[in-house]
Amino acid sequence: MWNYERRLQYPVNITKCNAKAAQIIISQYGGPDGEMGAAMRYLSQRYSMENRKAIGTLTDIGTEELAHLEIVATIVRQLTKNLTPEEIKASGFDKYYVDHTLAVWPTAAAGIPFNACEFQCKGDTITDLYEDMAAEQKARATYENILRLIKDPEICDPIRYLREREIVHFQRFGETLRRVQDDLDSKNFYAFNGQIDKKPC
């Protein structure tokens, strides 16, 4: 069960339209390392996790990713809501506009729709936690690429916040992995054997 709270986790106040920026930032909505993939990855991986603390971390980070998804959508919406037909044609936003008008739809910047194949739920604690750490680094790198391409302070402020959260999440998944490894038996410390084959002691 989730509850909706009618506010953003971090404020977004964008006063100028910028279709070029929106086309780049939408990748963090539905692109390969975006917030939609992040939320679905962590919330889906929870069910086969055996470590209680790892389940807590996945639940709480997965929930925060939903709040980040709303922040990214708000940025895209505020950058596009008052676009004129001339601006839409001149910025190259016309290729998106023809299918989605000014709606927010999950896609990568290059036009590839959101795809669940961009994340994995392998059903193995060690495998999944390594994937989660890599995902946080990929998302951080994407936010840094956005900051190299866009200089408007109204846009960069919430993007910087989102980038910082990737660093915190990487740290927490790293700590979770360490705790899981501490609990493994000595013969299986490096986790050559899948969780599914674990024999009862």
């Binding site: 709270e5 506010r7 986790q9 971090y10 404020p11 603390k53 709480d60 927490r172 700590e175």
Partner: peptide, 23 residues
Amino acid sequence: LLLYLSQVSFAINDLVLFLDTHP
């Protein structure tokens, strides 16, 4: 007031992640 509420709530969001790995 909304900004203050968001700041306090964020402090909790961040602390919850810390407590998940440092219970």
